[in-house]
């Protein structure tokens, strides 16, 4: 039998369509049809007191994947091992097959940004991220996936493309990719990056799943809000990705202004439709 190119590359990794579990919509997520897996924000969980809703989902056999936002893997300051250990403990408590964070920095010089900031795409910065990722992997206990961010600004000394930077990062560390197509769209609108060229350079066989989310464009700037409906360009990028190499799974992120359940169900169905489309 020829192995399917769609088979999950990561053993036990997610397959199908998922949604970001949030406390505000825990019952919604439990009720929504067609949810194959969920993702949780690791910093919002105590591994010793997981929300009951996650137990319900896990009893149904749904993978629950922890996603971190505060490791600051792109930060040049010493890695916060306490935060890595917390992520490891959450992954362990959830029986998760993997965990993830972003290629970004969130603290420097004693200040917290409160949000993901870009890393300069230089050889030197790449070496720093590689070191941080390796140190994280050594402690994490499960495979680590890295996500591209939605940038509003670029470093003046960017010397590598995003595709080359992420590709080499994965190659040198063995990390997986959590590819966010909405963030790819944000890079295209905000920094003029060609998303097709990024996809050309990324090791798509390392994509363990995909993030998709809604956003809004104002004055020529795309804001990755996670508070608006999915937009056609983001679905088109998912389609373009799937045409090249279909990722094993895709997940909807919604973090605010939660719509009625049927609207979330329709968004999941839209993702499934693009993801499952039979392509020539």
């Amino acid at each position: 039998m020829t192995p399917s190119p769609d088979a999950p590359a990561l053993p036990g990794g997610p397959v199908g369509v998922g949604i970001g579990w949030r406390r505000e919509i825990d019952l919604t997520v439990e009720r929504l049809p067609g949810v194959d897996f969920v993702e949780v924000v690791a910093e919002d969980l105590d591994p010793d007191e997981l929300p009951a809703s996650l137990g319900v989902l896990r009893e149904r056999g749904l993978p629950v994947l922890p996603h971190a936002v505060s490791l600051s893997l792109g930060g040049a300051e010493p890695l916060r091992h306490d935060r890595v250990r917390h992520l490891a403990a959450v992954a362990d408590a959830l029986g998760a097959p993997m965990a993830s964070d972003h290629v970004a920095f969130v603290r420097a010089g004693g200040l917290e940004s409160g949000h993901l900031l870009p890393v300069p795409r230089t050889r030197e910065a790449l070496a720093v991220v590689v070191d941080n990722v390796r140190a994280t992997q050594a402690e994490l206990g499960v495979p680590l996936a890295l996500e591209n961010i939605a940038p509003l600004l670029a470093w003046p000394d960017d010397a590598m493309t995003e595709g080359a930077f992420l590709g080499e990062l994965c190659e040198r560390t063995g990390a997986w990719l959590l590819l966010d197509v909405a963030n790819l769209h944000a890079s295209a609108v905000n920094l003029g990056q060609d998303p097709g060229e990024v996809l050309d350079e990324l090791p798509l066989e390392r994509v363990v799943y995909v993030h998709a989310a809604g956003g809004v464009e104002r004055d020529g700037v795309y804001h990755d809000t996670h508070a608006h409906p999915l937009t056609p360009p983001v679905l088109d990028l998912l389609d373009e990705l799937c045409a090249r190499r279909r990722p094993p799974a895709v997940l909807l992120e919604r973090d605010d202004r939660y719509p009625p359940d049927d609207e979330l169900a329709a968004e999941l169905a839209a993702l499934r439709s693009v993801h499952a489309r039979v392509r020539a």
Binding site: E24, D44, V69, D255, D256
Partner: peptide
């Protein structure tokens, strides 16, 4: 550890930008 973890809790919702 527990207090520390709770103090990290980024949000009642999520860490992403809006």
């Amino acid at each position: 550890v527990r207090a520390m973890r709770l103090s990290w809790r980024v949000t009642p919702g999520s860490p992403h930008p809006r």
